[in-house]
């Protein structure tokens, strides 16, 4: 088991190298003179030259790359132009907010999409199957930023059942003491049910927006893979041996159908992390997505670069976790791999 995890880790290294090279190249691709860009619009020629030397832009490209790697290794992602704060610190404080949102979106999507997919697969051709198919196609067609707005309008303005869709917590509540940075978990640790409820109320709309978007691929894959497994010989044998319907469905079929579903999770995470940015903007969620949008508006490049790198590394790690999970669910994979 440990050996397999190590091998997967080694397999992720080329991806990480690729990610680092691409982010490096993206900084060098800045339009115009990066030194002038980083120095700001009102800088003098000497200041620009000084920054050029400081950034190492007077050196050759491979040399610059080595310098870039050194900075990365020491955890230096540069400073934000507008606030002057180090990018890494800012990303670190904001990352839990984004992760909380993304994970809740994923959980919501899984608990609705997988049962629906199983239901559709056990009754192919029925109205529930057609409904699921329609829902799946409609789901991938939803622009997340638009669904978010619509949900906010209906639940806040029309029905008044949700709090003002701004931020992570209503202003009247103090943030729970930071342990994990996830408000839901932190408020539970502090045994503060009021805060927990308030945080959950703020979280539900953005998480549902994300969940709606990624439900579709999950539901499709669940249905397809369940259909495939249910028509296989060992299911027929299990049924012929007189096993109960639920046992065949959940112990035999579902466990085997899980593999392709877990594989789709990779794509699902790509969608989730991407649309996270849009949803954060709609709900003024103080995660790294809103941070990067603020930076984009003020042409502040260091946070954007740090953001792209962080997101890519988070994504590579998630894929790694999926790979490991795959091995746990299906021991055969470990032997072959």
């Amino acid at each position: 088991m440990l050996k397999m995890i190590l091998r997967r880790l080694a397999g992720a290294i080329p991806n990480i190298v690729g990610v680092v090279i691409v982010t490096f190249l993206l900084t060098r691709a800045l339009p115009g003179d990066p030194a002038a860009y980083f120095a700001g619009p009102s800088a003098t020629t000497e200041a620009i030259e000084q920054i050029r030397a400081q950034l190492g832009l007077d050196k050759s490209l491979p040399h610059q790359f080595v310098l870039y790697l050194k900075e990365l290794a020491s955890g230096d992602l540069g400073n934000s132009l507008s606030t002057g704060q180090p990018v890494l610190a800012e990303i670190r404080t904001r990352l839990p907010a984004s992760l909380e949102l993304t994970l809740c979106g994923l959980v919501l999507a899984c608990v609705t999409a997988i049962p629906l997919g199983v239901l559709a697969a056990t009754r192919p051709g029925s109205w529930i199957d057609h409904l699921c198919r329609m829902l799946a196609t409609a789901g991938v067609s939803l622009p997340t930023f638009f669904t978010g707005l619509l949900l906010a309008y209906v639940c806040y303005f029309l029905l008044g059942i949700s709090p003002s869709p701004v931020g992570r917590l209503d202003v009247s509540f103090p943030a729970p003491a930071t342990v994990t940075g996830l408000y839901l978990v932190d408020s539970l640790i502090a045994r503060d049910m009021e805060t927990f409820r308030a945080a959950a109320a703020q979280l539900i709309l953005p998480a549902a927006t994300l969940g709606l978007f990624v439900m579709a691929p999950l539901m499709r894959m669940t249905r397809a893979s369940m259909l495939g497994v249910l028509s296989s010989d060992f299911i027929r044998t299990a049924r012929a041996s007189g096993l109960s319907g639920t046992k065949v469905l959940y112990t035999y079929a579902f466990r085997n159908a899980l593999l392709p579903i877990v594989t789709t999770l990779g794509m699902v995470f790509s969608f989730l992390l991407g649309s996270n940015v849009l949803v954060e903007k709609v709900f003024a969620w103080p995660g790294i997505g809103s941070y990067v949008i603020e930076a984009l508006v003020s042409s502040d490049y260091a946070p954007v670069q740090g953001f792209v790198l962080t997101m890519a590394l988070v994504y590579v790690m998630l894929n790694l976790a999926i790979d490991v999970m795959y091995g746990v669910i299906d021991p055969r994979v470990g032997i072959e791999g």
Partner: peptide, 12 residues
Amino acid sequence: MAFPLFVLAMGI
């Protein structure tokens, strides 16, 4: 594919 695709598009 190692990047979340929308994030890469933003970066580009």
